[in-house]
């Protein structure tokens, strides 16, 4: 494969949310370790999937990339510029190139604005289009996402969940971004509607040469849409690989358990499938375990796992894993 161009480079990203106590004089008494030292690249034109269970930090990672949360430390380099250091007008300009599609299509659209206004708002803020050209662009965007352009004067409540998510997509596309962070864009939708939205996202990617960071907890959908996938657990990336590599040969014990927990829509396979059932719950991110974050639920944990944090390193070309025993699992 030819050298691919890195669009976004995330290096040692850390995001801690302080926990405050006291009424007037607030002092920090601890921190939620939402994202703890995460590094990855996104190449131009690809879809990187980010999966993990609730509270693993996948949404925080997405939001920190857009600077909706400022990172505690680390670099987010987008086309040569470190977004973490940008401020004010410069940051605002850069945001044109990175847009977001939110999870809940009911909460992410202002109920008092018409669809036309919602989609036009980013263009007004960034002054890319105005007057008749803006109106034309709104109509164009509506038909691009498969909605009737005559709907511009309607309000969000007149649309179903799937249609609202299309409005959210049109708004994200309004500024012709290069990267779109999709934060669980389909998890609030019904199964038959999910497929419609996923197909739309795929078509738009081909047509407009978009790059996606696709955040989701539905592993089978992530596998379907992504080129490469990163698995997160309690604020760190435990495994990162090409989608087929990851699903056929998961190396990290957490990835193995996560994949085996996904039910198959096939009773013949389900009958003979063996599940790895993880014991207990995810530990609190306020006080995460020392060393390997997964060791408290891991079947293979040994003394070294508590003492030392495993680094995310390459096992096979393009296949990264953060586990002390990665070579043992890789051979199997």
């Amino acid at each position: 494969m030819a050298e691919r161009e890195v669009l976004l480079h995330v290096e040692n990203l850390v995001k801690h949310f302080p926990i405050k106590k006291g009424v007037i004089f607030q002092r920090s008494v601890g921190a939620v370790h939402a994202v703890d030292d995460v590094s990855f690249d996104i190449f131009r034109g690809e879809t990187l999937g980010l999966v993990g269970e609730s509270g693993c930090g996948k949404s925080t990672t997405g939001r920190t990339i857009l600077q909706l949360h400022r990172p505690t430390s680390g670099k987010i380099i987008f086309e040569g510029e470190n977004l973490a250091e940008l401020k004010g007008e410069k940051l605002r300009r850069k945001r044109r190139d990175i847009q977001m599609i939110f999870q809940d299509p009911y909460a992410s659209l202002n109920p008092r604005m018409t669809v036309g206004k919602i989609i036009a708002e980013p263009m007004e803020i960034h002054k890319t289009f105005s007057g008749a050209a803006k109106e034309r662009r709104v109509q164009e965007l509506l038909s691009l996402v498969g909605l009737n352009p005559a709907f511009v004067n309607r309000y969000p409540h007149e649309f179903s969940g799937g249609q609202r998510q299309r409005i959210g997509v049109a708004r994200a596309l309004a500024l012709e971004p290069k990267l779109i962070v999709c934060d669980e864009p389909i998890s609030a939708l019904d199964v038959s509607i999910q497929a419609q939205v996923v197909n739309l996202l795929e078509d738009l990617q081909k047509e407009l040469n978009l790059t996606y960071l696709f955040i989701a907890h539905d592993l089978s959908m992530v596998r379907h849409i992504s080129d490469r996938i990163a698995v997160m657990y309690l604020g760190i990336i435990v495994e990162l690989a090409d989608r087929n590599m990851l699903y056929q040969n998961p190396i990290h014990p957490y990835s193995q358990a996560l994949l085996s927990a996904v039910p198959f829509p096939d009773p013949f396979i389900e009958e003979t499938r063996e599940r790895i059932i993880l014991e207990g719950d995810v530990p609190s991110p306020i006080n995460p375990p020392s060393g390997c974050r997964f060791r408290t639920r891991c079947r293979y944990a040994e003394d070294i796992c508590a003492a030392e944090r495993p680094a995310l390193s390459e096992v096979a070309p393009g296949h990264f894993c953060a586990c002390h025993f990665r070579d043992r699992f890789a051979r199997k």
Binding site: V191, A195, V198, N199, S220, M221, F264
Partner: peptide, 19 residues
Amino acid sequence: LLGSLPRMDELSYRRLTSI
């Protein structure tokens, strides 16, 4: 409905059939 579900055992890409 069955066609609109992606399957983890599929090796090649298949466009989801949406309703």
